[in-house]
Every structure is written in C-alpha cells, then in structure tokens.
Design a binder for these strands. Structure first.
Lengths: 341, 341
DNA sequence: TATTAGCACTTAACCATTGAGAGTGCTAAA
DNA sequence: TTTAGCACTCTCAATGGTTAAGTGCTAATA
C-alpha cells in the first residue's frame, strides 16, 4: 500500500521533525535528502501520505508533521536495534553497579536518573509487581503494643517490611510458631498464589478453631495484600528543556501525568510480561493523561522472572532510535547483572 | 523606625500582593484599605518604605512589590498563629491516620500530598535523620550468597533494611550470635553514638582477634552508616497553576530545585532541631536554587525526639498565614498521633 | 507642617497593520 | 509522470499608535 518512494519520504519527514521541531516542507525534504525529485513531486507524495493518515498539517501553509500513525510506521521500520554501541551508556551504567548491592529500590531509582540523563527524556522504572514475586521466608517480630512487624524475603532478593495491627497481644513465642507455620506452608509460592490459598484455607472451618493459625492467616492477608510495585520517575527538569514543552498548558499536562503515578503504574504493569523493547505512541495509549506522550519500555528479567520494568517517557516527537537503544541496553545490562550476582 | 501608619501601609501592600499577583499602586491601597488618606500621601509613604528596603519597583510606572525583607517584616508581625480552626485540614488529616499504621514513610508521603492539596503549594516532608534515631533491636539473616540482611528496629518505630556484602560465608548461627552481641551492646544508643563507639572498639586490638566480633563490627559499620533521611515532595502540578510560575524560566528553576533533593535535605536538616514553625523567605536561604522560594516548616517531635520535618515550599509571594497554620496544625497533629500510639 | 490635588512623565500592554517568508495546491507544460 | 510556475494562505515579527496605570514632583490647602 506504500511504495518505496513514499516510505522514504515519510521517514525523511519524520527524521527531520525529530531532529528539528518545526513542520517540514517539501523543499526541505527535496534538498536535504537526496531524492532526485523536485519539491513539487515531493509535495504530491506528501499530500498522498496525508490522505493516508501518516502526516498532518498544523495549518494550510505550514509543512507536514507526523501523526501518531506516522510515528508507528517509522518505529516499526526501525529494525536495527540496540547495537548502537554507546560507550557513554555503558560507562554510566557501570557506575551504578555499586548501588545494586544496596537494594533494588536504590538501583531502580538510580537507573531512572541515568536514563533521563542519557536520553534527555523522563526515565521511569517500576519494581516488580509483588503478586508475581515468590516468598522465600517471612519473619515476625512483635513491634510495638498491638503491632507485629513482618519482614518478608523474596526469591528475587527483595525485602519488604509490613507493620500489622493486632487486636490482641501475641507473644514472640507465638509469633515464632506462626512464622514457622507460614514458612513451611507458603515458602516458594508467589504472593498471588498465597493469597488464593489463604482464601481457600479460610473456608475450612476446622482451622479456624486454632486461634493461632487463624491469627497467622490474618497476618498473611495483611502482609501479602500489596497491589503494585513502586514507581520511580526522574528527569523532569531535563524534559522541560525540550521545545515540545515550551508552553504552560503542555507542562501542566506533563506534570499531572507524572504525578498521577497510578496511571503509569497500570500502564507499565501491562507491559511487564512481554519481552524486548515495547513502544507506545501517543494516542495508542488508553490513558488520557498520556495521549501526547510516548513510552519506550522494556521488562528486566532474571532468567525468566520479571524483576521490574524500565523505560523512557517523552514527547511523541522523540528520538525513538536513541530511546530504544538506551532502554534495550539498560534492561539487558540490569538483567545480566542480576543473574551474575 | 517604622511608625504605625507605615506598618499598616506595608502590610496592606503585602496582603494585596499575596491575594492578587500584580504590583500594587497607591490608589488601590488608599481605596481598598480604609486609611483616611489620599493616594498622594500613600505614595509618599510607599516611597519611604522603598527607601528603607521593604518594597521595590519592577519599573518606574508600576506599583510596589514587597522585597524579601518586606515579607520578613510581615511574617514577623503575624503573631496570631495556628488557631485558624480549619475544619478541612483536620478532616483531611484524620483520613491519613490509617496510613500511619502502615509505616512512617507512607505517613510522610501521604502528608506531603495532603499539605499540597490544602495549601496549593509544594508539600515536603523528611523522615528523621538516622543519626539521631535510637536502636531498639537488630536482626540478621543470611540473605543470598555473600550477603547478609540486617533488619533494624528503632525506638521511633522505624524499620530499616540493609543488605550487607560479606567477603566470607557466615552461618545463620553465627549471625544469631552476632545479633545477640550487638543487641546487648548497642541497644538504646543512637546511631551516632553507635558509630562513635564502633570507632573506639575497633582500636582495641584484643577484640579484633575474635573473628566473629570483628565481623559484627563490619556489619555495624555498614548498617549504621546512612547519612540523611528520606525526602518526600508532592504537589508540582498544584503549584504550576499559580501565576508565579507562569513563565518557562521560572518553571525550570522550580523543577531543578525540586529535583535537587540534596539541597532541600540539607536545608531541612538544619531546621529539624528547632521547635515550632520556622520560615525562610527567598534569599534568606543560602541555597542558590531556592532564592526565589520560601519555606514554611516545622519539626515533628515525639515527646522530645525529632521524628521528621514537614513543611511547605512556595513562591515568596505566599499566603504565609495559611501556610503557617497548615504546617503548624499538621506537625502538631502528627506529633500527637505518634505519642498516643 | 502634614496632607492633598494636579499635572507631566514613564512604561507596559494591547491592538491593528504591514511585509516578509515559508509552504501549499493547482494548472499547464515538458 | 514529473516539473515549473503562480496565486493563495497563513504565521511571525516588527512597527507604531493608543490606553491605562502609576509614579514623582510641585504648588496649594487645612
């Protein structure tokens, strides 16, 4: 449906627009990219591309600007991925290696900063959705009066604290028995599975007679009921330098999108299962707040277990090639690093 | 040095400017505030106030605008504090009561959101500087190969995880002995004191012979060496609605200030010792990034122990009265809540 | 002597006009 | 099928004139 020549013109328009935020005209394309065609011909082609929905007009006498569909075509044709051996990236990431040892949260938060510095867009990262992490061990301590502290270790190397309110006093001895029971019963299961099993257990009335075990189940319900991973975003000041966010209205939209972490979390959550770099352009996204932004993300995996999502948020007019290669490299780097450890 | 009338004019100018972001002229003051004086007289007074450094001129034919010194005078004369019984505030805060039970981090993060919603400025909160928190108990677990997880409970109710790299394998049994030793030795001391004691212990060569204890000291060094508290900031989209941040340059400055958490942490840290609401206006602040912003903060204390700092960051043209009362109430509310618990 | 009215002056903000420049669409010729 | 040419459209920046707000100063006033 698109002949070779049209494709080239489309890509030329997009590339030019990405590097230079003004609508691009037929003359520019004819001159800068060595088609042996006159401006008039290019003009005709561009008119066709517009009719097909790949380009638009801000107004009659302005050049062409890509639509989301245009970007999509461009991105899909960008097959050469990830191997832009950007030394800068590698060095930057190596420096962050230390942070990893500390804890995953630290790693993710540093990663977002690095990504944003490298890409000049927003860096995002989300630690794994707890529902798919696997319980390794749980330890319980009486904390303050009426409160129990649960320390949860996962196979992924995460440590989570939960403070649980209790309606009656429980001794440390009781807690030890409870944690013993929980570990023997639930260790090796994901939080999701544990939740489901708890629901089943609860229906067995026999167990409810054992006060301690019903207590244990209460604790579990609290401890494993945590919906989403943590979200990290960095680089707002970086992105405000872009001409795309030169007017107040757009900045407000952006800041709302960034502050409404819930939206982004839901979005990233959907993508955390898939492999490789994924791209969502503008309105392809179902979230209203993000309609004018694009996402380039990749899941990080340790062997086959998802251990988080990292990515870039930027304007639809984004340097997708650069973004893809940064995200790809970073995700692979983190995955590799975690396997080695 | 300032007669009663001048004071009143100054306050009138500032109040008007706070509620309405345009330079205020002599006519406005004469009309809106019932001085029985003509505009001309007000004009003379304003000229005097300008000479004394309380007001400025954006340009010759514009009205007056307060200087930082002017704001300072105004704020100092605002003695009626905190008792603006704002029902809204109270209700909003009560809702957050649940979050407290979870953990302090959650509480602080929610508090910033509430504060920003109520004030329409940035809400900030910093959890306590670890160096002044008191160790209640430490538990050690072998985590992954070569890694030990330290769970630190403080008297303040905080729980901290630290993952510590070990150069040699230690069994769980060893870890239990180590934690037993640490608890008997350091429980009840602040992190600062612990650090100092460790330095002393290390010089006693006798102990170094006991491999386990030297190991323990290694662990401590890692575990208690954490410089600052966590900083939470919320409400950027709120603050972008203000006319004070209507141009790009100012927004960039603001976003840089917000992203450079280190600067704010240092600033808040200085204020975490003092009692009551403290106010820093524009250039009174030593940090360059914050020269055009004001801070209204208060330390939260449990009995006499500092458990964090909360506050508001906004433009120098801030509704200080409202800000002060919100900060004061919130800080007192949190302090009270934590004592009761 | 303190206050006020009046007036000249300054400046920003708004508005309409203008011309240049960029780019298009269309037509007719190659 | 491609291209040259041309009329047309639209933005943008500069220009200039007008208005409104506000000042500072001076002279009159209570």
């Amino acid at each position: 449906m698109l002949d070779e020549r049209s494709k080239k013109v489309l890509c030329a328009v997009i590339q030019n627009y990405i590097s230079h935020p003004d609508p691009v005209g037929s003359r520019t394309v004819a001159k800068k990219y060595s088609f042996n065609l006159s401006a008039a011909t290019i003009r005709n082609i561009m008119a066709d591309l517009e009719e097909m929905g790949f380009l638009t007009h801000p107004h009659t006498s302005a050049g062409r600007v890509p639509t989301d569909r245009g970007y999509r075509f461009y991105v899909d044709s960008l097959s050469a991925r990830g191997d832009c051996s950007n030394k800068e990236v590698i060095r930057g990431l190596f420096k962050k290696l230390d942070a990893l040892r500390e804890n995953l949260d630290m790693l993710f938060s540093e990663t977002t900063k690095t990504i944003s510095l490298l890409s000049h867009y927003l860096g995002v990262a989300m630690s794994p959705d707890p529902s798919v992490t696997t319980l390794k061990r749980i330890e319980l301590f009486s904390h303050r009066a009426d409160q129990v502290a649960a320390i949860i270790f996962t196979d992924e190397g995460l440590i989570k604290n939960k403070i649980i309110d209790m309606d009656l006093n429980v001794t440390q001895k009781d807690l030890n028995r409870i944690s013993g029971y929980l570990n023997s019963e639930f260790s090796g299961y994901t939080f999701d599975e544990i939740r489901q099993r708890i629901l089943k257990e609860m229906s067995r009335e026999k167990l409810l007679c054992d006060r301690l075990i019903s207590k244990a189940i209460d604790i579990c319900r609290e401890a494993f009921f945590s919906s989403y991973g943590d979200l990290f975003i960095a680089g707002l000041s970086e992105v405000l330098e872009l001409p795309d966010f030169s007017d107040l209205q757009k900045i407000r939209e952006l800041s709302r999108a960034v502050e409404d972490k819930h939206t982004i979390v839901k979005l990233l959550d959907k993508l955390s299962e898939s492999d490789g770099v994924q791209i969502i352009i503008g309105s392809e996204n179902s979230m209203n707040e993000m309609k004018k932004l694009s996402l380039v993300v990749s899941a990080c995996k340790e062997d086959d277990k998802p251990i988080g999502v990292i990515g870039i948020i930027g304007p639809t007019r984004m340097d997708y090639f650069k973004a893809i290669s940064i995200v790809d490299m970073t995700a692979k780097f983190i995955s590799r690093m975690l396997v080695e450890k």
